[in-house]
């Protein structure tokens, strides 16, 4: 089964026969001496779609430093306004749309672009919290020059179906790298939490109350407080106490909490 089909089958879509995308070697080997058969490898075609985002997500991708070459080398970037010349999404289908930023519902162009990306892409990845959860744009309320009517900014899963979410504001270079390597090596176990529905859509520090504490699961480790990019969480007597005004609704805290999901098998693999 091809990689894309594997990923799709993970969240219920029936696998179709698709052209085989042969995965590059795992990245530990720095230089990949290409074997004869692997010369024919078709790299996944990737479009980087920039909606209402700050480009910080793309910068974070570049922050993988020398590993960026592994990441970019594993794909064929067909569209990326920041880095390349192509002005529009390519004709016909491509493999993956990586989307940065939320959708402004009053901006026709944005709504059209995200829908077009969904039609053409095999997989859509909400990359970074603006795309995944709406993030700081949940606070938008319009009324500013020179588009005072631009007031509704939503995570992309309000407009289209999303296949995977990479949380973070921005996602850390390490998680981007891990995600990419898991994707090219077909490590569906690692990818699962990114594909869970609860990874996308509106999030808030109060998730810790409704999802963790209300279910008697919090044990006071403080991971949520560490992961919060705005220091909205303070640990008080062993429990997170969060400042709603500071919270930018990124969802990092509940994703990071070891009581939201605990990747036991993966952790065991790390204990060597």
């Amino acid at each position: 089964m091809g990689l894309l089909d594997k990923l799709k089958s993970l969240f219920g879509g029936a696998p179709k026969a698709a052209p085989e995308n042969k995965a590059p070697e795992p990245v530990k080997k720095e230089v990949l001496p290409p074997k004869k058969e692997e010369v024919k490898v078709t790299k996944p075609k990737v479009a980087y779609v920039h909606l209402s985002g700050c480009t910080g997500c793309l910068v974070s991708l570049a922050d993988t430093y020398e590993k960026l070459l592994d990441v970019l080398g594993a794909v064929d970037m067909v569209y990326n306004l920041t880095l390349a010349d192509a002005r529009t999404l390519p004709e016909g289908k491509f493999d993956i749309a990586i989307v940065e930023g939320a959708v402004c519902l009053q901006d026709e162009e944005s709504v059209h672009l995200i829908k077009e990306a969904r039609e053409k892409a095999g997989l859509v990845v909400a990359y970074g919290d603006c795309a995944a959860t709406g993030n700081v744009l949940n606070n938008s309320r319009g009324g500013q020059w020179n588009q005072p009517q631009h007031e509704s900014f939503v995570p992309i899963n309000r407009v289209i179906k999303v296949d995977a979410y990479i949380p973070g504001c921005p996602p850390s270079p390490e998680i981007i790298y891990n995600f990419c390597i898991a994707a090219v090596t077909g490590d569906t176990e690692y990818l699962k939490p990114f594909m869970a529905n609860e990874a996308g859509g509106y999030h808030c520090g109060c998730d810790l109350n409704t999802r963790i504490i209300e279910n008697s699961l919090c044990m006071g480790c403080g991971t949520c407080a560490a992961s919060c990019p705005t220091r909205a969480i303070e640990m008080v007597y062993g429990r997170p106490s969060f400042n709603n005004i500071r919270c930018i609704k990124c969802g990092a805290c509940s994703f990071a909490c070891p009581r939201s999901f605990l990747p036991v098998n993966k952790i065991k693999g790390q204990i060597v």
């Binding site: 974070s60 270079p173 390490e174 480790c221 991971t223 990019p229």
Partner: peptide, 25 residues
């Protein structure tokens, strides 16, 4: 140094460093 739950929190952070840029290494 931590209780078992804190150790697995750290191990999860190494694998899924959300909001934990440049922490794993």
């Amino acid at each position: 140094v931590g209780t078992p739950c804190q150790i697995y929190a750290v191990q999860k952070m190494r694998l899924y460093p959300v909001g934990a840029r440049h922490i794993p290494d």
